[in-house]
């Protein structure tokens, strides 16, 4: 099973709604994540700097990227431990590619 990990900057809440503005990306990601995880065929895990900072230190690649590129490298997407994308969230197409799951929600986007 493919495992996608997304390392995000600190958010008050993952939908970004408590933040200063609605980030459509975060709402989209929350929906896809749920749908992929419920399919049972792949797993998307999100790690938020405010709630799980240890993950950012534990993962050597992430820690290294943070050291060299600072916050600009976030969000970072890893697929089975390999860095696939930095500085922006993956698109729906990219997520289909990473997970091999084309869920209804992902398709209708």
């Amino acid at each position: 099973m493919k495992k996608v990990e997304i390392f995000e900057p600190a958010l008050c809440c993952p939908t970004g709604l408590c933040g200063p503005t609605v980030d459509q990306n975060l709402v989209r990601l929350t929906a896809i994540q749920r749908s992929v995880n419920h399919s049972g065929k792949a797993m998307i895990v999100r790690r938020n700097l405010a709630q799980n900072p240890n993950a950012f230190v534990r993962n050597k690649q992430v820690a290294e990227l943070l050291k060299t590129d600072d916050m600009a490298c976030l969000p970072i997407t890893l697929v089975d431990g390999v860095v696939k994308k930095t500085g922006a969230y993956p698109t729906n197409e990219e997520l289909i590619g990473y997970t091999g799951v084309a869920t209804e929600q992902v398709k209708t986007q």
């Binding site: 600190a10 700097l49 900072p53 240890n54 950012f56 230190v57 600072d70 916050m71």
Partner: peptide, 21 residues
């Protein structure tokens, strides 16, 4: 939450965490 990461994570990351909490 923040203290163990001072000096480990970049300062900008520390500030980001701190404000969100």
């Amino acid at each position: 939450v923040v203290a163990p990461y001072r000096g480990v994570l970049p300062e900008a990351a520390i500030q980001n965490m701190s404000e969100q909490l």
